[in-house]
Design a protein around this nucleic acid. Sequence first.
DNA 1: TTGTAAGCGTTATCAA
DNA 2: TTGATAACGCTTACAA
Lengths: 348, 348
Amino acid sequence: MAGEKKLTIRDIARMAGVSRSTVSLALNNSPLVNAQTKARILRLIEEVSYRPNAMARGLVSKHCGVISVVVPPVSHVFSDSYFSESLSGILDAASEVDYRVAIETANEEFASGRRPERLFEERRTDGLLAVGALISDRYLERLFQAGRPVVLVNSELGETPATIADNEEGTVAVVHHLVSLGHRAIGYIKGPDITTTGLQRDKGFRNGLRLAGLPYREDLMACGDFSEKSGYEAMAQILERGPAPSAVFAANDMMAIGAARRLKEAGLVVGRDVALVGGDDAPLARYVEPPLTTLRQSMYDLGAQAARLLLEWVGNKRPPARRTVLHTELVIRASCGAARGARAVPGL
Amino acid sequence: MAGEKKLTIRDIARMAGVSRSTVSLALNNSPLVNAQTKARILRLIEEVSYRPNAMARGLVSKHCGVISVVVPPVSHVFSDSYFSESLSGILDAASEVDYRVAIETANEEFASGRRPERLFEERRTDGLLAVGALISDRYLERLFQAGRPVVLVNSELGETPATIADNEEGTVAVVHHLVSLGHRAIGYIKGPDITTTGLQRDKGFRNGLRLAGLPYREDLMACGDFSEKSGYEAMAQILERGPAPSAVFAANDMMAIGAARRLKEAGLVVGRDVALVGGDDAPLARYVEPPLTTLRQSMYDLGAQAARLLLEWVGNKRPPARRTVLHTELVIRASCGAARGARAVPGL
DNA sequence: TTGTAAGCGTTATCAA
DNA sequence: TTGATAACGCTTACAA
């Protein structure tokens, strides 16, 4: 449509009556160019709306202005607030420094086919962010040790730089809260051992019991995989073994919601007969009936912070501090039994 | 770490004892190179794991291997299945042809600052996908008319190529279903007029009533903006005006959930006293109590299909057919009153 | 079928 | 302070 063909730095140089390098210097805001000349060139550039070619720039500078976010290959991965919120944080942090964000799905051949290293080798990305990596994702450590800029969002993997939430401390607080409400037999739906969050919350749960002088009861525990279904099944197992505990802690909200479904089937009313606590503060948590008490970790902040670390690294060529820890927060809602004096927060 | 410095096409040429252009031809699978030579070169490339520099390639080919997805600037945009599912579809379609996907947030200055045109001019993207664009997003038409590859996901904007769902027909089916259950007074929570989906469902609702020989009753209608809160408030308005209708259609699931909250406050039981239907089949729809009957549109498919169209366009340099229409599906769950003989689908 | 050479649009080096 | 000129790593006519 637009009859004009693409302008290059040559055209600008000619139009401004200077050389290409002068234009380049002006463009990159170098102090080596006369302020007046610079202003004149920049004005011209604005007028004719010239845009430097990013690929030509990148060819020389060795930077492409893109960071990549690796997410698990689940089809509805972004429906999970865990990922969607961290992505929002990442996008905001990247746009602050005019970087673009690309998404990579970690399908089966991703690690085995050395896709991440290819991304770097082909110069398609300047750095990698992995959200909710599993401890089996060794390729991330491999990348880090090869000197690639990599930051983990909410997981720990050896020395690889990461942002994490203090889920262990938070879970101690969860137990403390339940105990303070008078609960002594606390059911536990454990998260997967291959996730940092699962491990952290497990440690916290056990510590919490210890601090309260309560025993860790295997008969009240069952394992899940963070899915709703697994929470339902874990709850079923626990109920089969004996009388229902007066309180249940599930390592995340989806499992808590599954557990609630099973409890309801057993004729128990969550919030009255059984106190229930989950984790993550998923959007769903406030819509279920009753609204779910949960251990909130701000995935938005974890994502944004990780992106900032990564971008700094890319800029400085020097890895940042190994870990950044953000705080979790216990959000008390009706599922915990407001009647017993707990501070309740409305569902919406 | 790795002591070896980056290999270039020169190195490969030297090692293989051929010229650079031969390597290039082999790399691009050209028929102009001897099959044996090609095989030998490719084997060598594999052995030494040489990776062509994408930016150098792009500088010549004028393609960067990236398409961009524009999403609204809402912080939790990906928590909305509408966006997250379409993104999954887009990712899968892009990976089929080894393209990468970048995310762009359409914040205030996005359109006014001509960000999208910059992306193209700076050669940072090969094409644009807009998910759930508003009819006020005129910049998308502008881009299309300037010859830029743009495809809309689930919206219509002049001649711009798009994939859409047949929400109008689907909504006619919704009304038909409610009428067949015996409902005559159907409450209506209307979606925003600036969205294609809102308009489609509005047309469908009116058509459905007309086909059933029922009047469109202003007193049973209120407008929302697709948010849970707006659904709650719209329902409140309708209830203030008179006796509750026996059925309510809300133009999307979040508004339906808000409406359910208000109905519950009014002492009405959804699925028994009032039939409720939403739209989108959000993940939440099956978790609320009772599970929500909804008009499903597969955002995954809409996204994937749009991405395929876009990528074809980028490849061929020729715009695809103007529109692709995918079907919606009425998913019947308990909120519609299984007791009246409707086919019920379990909540999970 | 293969090699030579001329770009692609920048940045960076080094004189002037 | 500015201007030639040489990279950057690849593709593609064109020649051999």
